[in-house]
């Protein structure tokens, strides 16, 4: 079901945390609310599920106005970061609780619990207590409990934050699979851009209560709206260098790059270079010294200090033959170079 949030405003006391935010999530879509901590993404989530009252604006699930409905009567479920399983109940009682509250009969409950347990692959764990489960299994139970009554909207609040790296990869695909198979509309709140990019159809990147950009992961990575978005997306992160836009793009220390035709204007700019767009395969232009090499197996992360003192990071396939202290003269991939005005807007 479609979710439409319009002119949403939230205040805590005298501080306005979010003002007039609009958000539209299509039916069956999975959207990420991404941003640094304190950007208002959790506040938005809590307003959607009805834990926080909205101070302004409206919220629709499909045609239904749920702005003032209490949480119990909205068809929305949250999977919390710590899963919030009921520790005194067995797994099947946990999953059955939402159905018991609605007074479904015993046969229906057994059938639905069995079906959802199959979907999230916890069929053999139904008699255990939450304390006897691993983190990933608890996550699956929480997902099952949230999905068992087939809510209109599923909200996921940092669902992977408490898992170790390997489980995180596994649950990432699992959550996405369950979401796809059921076709549920879902919102994922996270501060991890890798999670957001890998799991979601679209990403809303938030800062200070505002949506900075709302786009597909690829668009957002390749075509960021401003310096904040460019800096937030990508791991290892993009490098920013002060530069001057004239005939060429000039950096301090005598380095310069050819100016791409698409850039208009002149004057001081901030240059954004992603690690994968810097290296010997792109010709020459930036001279410097390698200060650090961080092997990652398949590729190496290489820190370069330019002659003008700026620090840059490149990523090269293993076996490149460079070592700490080497002098290099590397080029950049001109069509993927990003430029920002001094106030952070994209040029």
């Amino acid at each position: 079901m479609e979710l439409i949030l319009s002119k949403f405003t939230k205040r805590f006391g005298a501080t306005t945390v979010i003002s007039e935010m609009d958000l539209h999530v299509g039916a069956g879509e999975m959207l990420a609310l991404l941003g640094p901590s304190g950007c208002g993404k959790s506040t938005t989530l809590f307003a959607i599920c009805g834990i926080h009252r909205m101070d302004g604006g409206s919220l629709h699930f499909g045609d239904r106005d749920v702005t003032t409905l209490p949480a119990q009567r909205r068809s929305v479920k949250v999977v919390f970061q710590n899963y919030a399983l009921y520790p005194h109940m067995s797994v099947s009682d946990n999953i059955a609780f939402p159905l018991r509250v609605k007074r479904h009969d015993r046969a229906t409950i057994t059938r639905k619990v069995g079906a959802i347990a199959e979907l999230v692959h916890i069929g053999e764990l139904l008699d255990r207590k939450p304390a006897q489960l691993s983190g990933g299994q608890q996550q699956r139970v929480a997902l099952a409990r949230a999905m068992v009554r087939e809510p209109d909207v599923l909200l996921l609040d940092e669902p992977l934050a408490n898992l170790d790296a390997k489980l995180r990869l596994e649950m990432r695909t699992e959550i996405r699979r369950v979401q796809r198979e059921t076709g549920i509309t879902a919102i994922l709140v996270t501060h991890d851009q890798v999670e957001a990019m890998s799991m979601c159809d679209r990403i809303a990147l938030m800062r200070a209560g505002q949506i900075e950009q709302l786009a597909t992961p690829v668009q957002m990575y390749e075509n960021p709206a401003n310096q904040f978005v460019a800096g937030f997306m990508g791991n290892p992160p993009i490098s920013f260098l002060p530069a001057h836009l004239g005939e060429r793009i000039t950096l301090s220390g005598g380095n310069s790059l050819p100016r791409p035709d698409r850039l208009a204007g002149q004057g001081p700019i901030t240059l954004g270079l992603r690690p994968e767009h810097l290296g010997p395969q792109f010709g020459q232009g930036l001279r410097g010294t390698i200060t650090f090499v961080e092997p990652q197996g398949r590729e190496d992360l290489i820190d370069v200090r330019l002659t003008g003192g700026e620090a840059l990071r490149a990523i090269l396939p293993s076996g490149h033959g460079h070592a700490i202290g080497d002098s290099v003269d590397w080029g950049v991939r001109g069509d993927r170079l990003l430029a920002f005005s001094t106030d952070g807007e994209r040029i």
Partner: peptide
């Protein structure tokens, strides 16, 4: 008691009293 447990209960459709009593 983590407050998420109560919030999860409310999300599950239980009244505040039910949440207190059974969760």
């Amino acid at each position: 008691v983590p407050w998420e447990i109560e919030m999860a209960g409310v999300q599950d459709g239980a009244s505040r009293f039910r949440v207190w009593w059974s969760l």
